[in-house]
Structure formats: C-alpha cells, structure tokens
Amino acid sequence: MSEQEREQAFFDKVKAALNEGSRNLDARTLSRLRQARHRALQADRPRAAWERYGWRVPAAGVATASVALLSVMLYVSLPSRIPLGDALEDADILASSENLEISVDLDFYTWLAEEAGRAG
C-alpha cells in the first residue's frame, strides 16, 4: 500500500469514527439540539439577553459583581502576582456575556474576497 493510500485509509477511518460518534448521540442531547435549533429559528429579531438566557442573566450579574468585589478585596489586601492590567482584562472577560457576540462581519467578507483574489 502506498503512502497516499495509507493516508487515505487513515482519513476514511477517522471520518467513519467521527460519523459514528455523531450518529450515536443520546436522545436527551438530540432533543436539546432540536430545542436549540427551534429557539434560534424563532430569533427573528434581536432579543434581550434575558429573553434568551432567563434566570441566568441575573445570576450572571450577581456572579460578576461577586468576582469584581473579590478582585478588589484581594488586590487591596494582598501583594499580587497578577499584573493589574491582566486583572482588568480578566474582569472584562468574566463580566462580559454579550461582548463576544459577533458583529456584522464586514471584515470577514473583505478578508474572504482578498484571500479568494490572492488564490485566483
């Protein structure tokens, strides 16, 4: 068997295993995927975070406030090994629930067009 054939056989085996794994999802997971799909399809307008995540929003708010308070207390009371700049960035990451939402991605299309142009 040539190297190319061996590589193809490897890919075939990998794909078969991955397909098998996705085919054998349990009923609960499949049901939740279906629910997620239906919720997404009903998202015909920008929704407030509380509509999508319900109780998790106030819970996230409390958690965020707690993290911020704990951070301040620790920095005030203890010598820190984490630079203040990193800590502020961390707080921003932990506090954000929506800032990771992808905006209308003009740069994606620009980039895609550039790449396609370069390839062509």
Partner: peptide, 10 residues
C-alpha cells in the same frame, strides 16, 4: 446554541 443564534440573527 450560541452559534445557531449568531447565524440566524446575523
């Protein structure tokens, strides 16, 4: 779910 929402909404 987030990815689905992102695709549908945007």
């Amino acid at each position: 779910q987030d990815a689905m929402f992102g695709l549908v909404r945007r």
